[in-house]
Design a protein around this nucleic acid. Structure first.
Lengths: 210, 210
DNA sequence: TAGATTGTTAATCGATTAACAATC
DNA sequence: TAGATTGTTAATCGATTAACAATC
């Protein structure tokens, strides 16, 4: 059976559902209705029910959704119920920020290596992990079974490093640089687009105050 | 005359157009067609013409668009042709990364203050700017005419600090924390949603390799 | 059972694509 | 002028909302 193609707009709402379910679980709330999820997320109740039903009937009529169960289901869909070995490429401030942020580790993205090409930084420790030379990239990715590379190098070096990562057999690149990367479709790229986000903020400021 | 309401999906494409026009200008290309912009951005030529025509007829039949002119027009729309005084709140690695990144300064987002509440950090210099106490927030925002706060504190403190920023009269918050902020509609919030981005990457990895 | 809330179909709305007249 | 490419209308496609039967 051909899997139904889920639209990107639906996919990008799932993480927010998941995070809100985490919050509910933390405060020991065990059930939630689509209307309550609507209040928490800002999406409509109808939209939420439609979204969830793309993946299965997770709810119960007259009751709503079981928080723990729905979270687990969404976690499965998002691939958050297993650990993903991750490396950081670029040990500057941004790379250090990611390495030190426990929220990603908690979500199953385990930093198993930090790489840099700067001799002055190689050998230093960041968040308890020794920075290694980018020359060892391929070996590290193979040996440590690394799936995701967090790209935190300079814009200038971003494309070259992305190509090295591709050759080294990386599956995915989480792109925190302001460069648009050109890699083969074998590699999944997710752009954070910091610059676009800031520019969008600027648009709304201008719109509001003019 | 009522300004036509432009949809958010259009707005979020504008920064990419702008960046690509910057690239073209840098390599001294003076004209570009919607088809060429399509090749650069991945949006369709038709979509690009529609998007741009929401704001005015920037092109010339039979010729295309003048790069410098279109960039200037988009810059005006995005509010990038003027300087925005900006402060960073949270002088950790993430705040330091933003402070040290010249790309934002070049785009007109001028870092005029860095704030933190940690006594051990206050007084230190980051990117040539002395870190000040968060206690001075309101005074700094008023005196230095700060419009934008880059929020780079911990998730735990994000909501409280956002409220302080609102009381201090900030216009906009660029939210780099993983918290969803609850502030009044007087304050514009743009979320970078790092966690959602990483979760989305995880979804596509799972989809591809299963 | 009565009340509540899902799952799902149908209706609406909005965004994208196609097409081509206008015009440089 | 002939060729190119925009601006813009119309057609299509897809996403959101509304509504309600199903059912816990």
């Amino acid at each position: 059976m051909q899997k139904k193609k889920i639209s990107i707009t639906v996919i990008r709402r799932l993480p927010k559902y998941y995070r809100k379910l985490e919050d509910l679980e933390r405060i020991k709330i065990s059930r939630v209705s689509s209307q309550e999820l609507s209040d928490l997320t800002g999406f409509t109740a109808s939209q939420i029910r439609q979204d969830l039903n793309n993946f299965g009937g997770f709810g119960l009529q007259g009751y709503g959704y079981n928080v723990k169960e729905l979270k687990s289901n969404l976690g499965e869909i998002l691939g958050l119920n297993s650990v993903h070995n991750t490396c950081i490429v670029g040990a500057g401030n941004l790379g250090s920020a990611i390495a030190n942020f426990k929220g990603f580790e908690d979500a199953g993205f385990k930093i198993v290596a930090i790489l840099d090409s700067d001799k002055d930084i190689i050998g230093k420790k960041i968040s308890g992990i020794k920075v290694e030379s980018s020359d060892n990239m391929e070996k590290l990715i193979k040996d440590k079974d690394i799936e995701i590379a967090v790209l935190t190098v300079s814009k200038k070096n971003a494309q070259d490093v992305a190509e090295e990562l591709e050759e080294a057999g990386i599956k995915s690149i989480w792109n925190l640089t302001t460069a648009d990367l050109d890699v083969s479709e074998n590699v999944i790229v997710e752009d954070v687009s910091l610059k676009d986000s800031l520019f969008t903020l600027s648009y709304f400021m201008r719109e509001k105050h003019n």
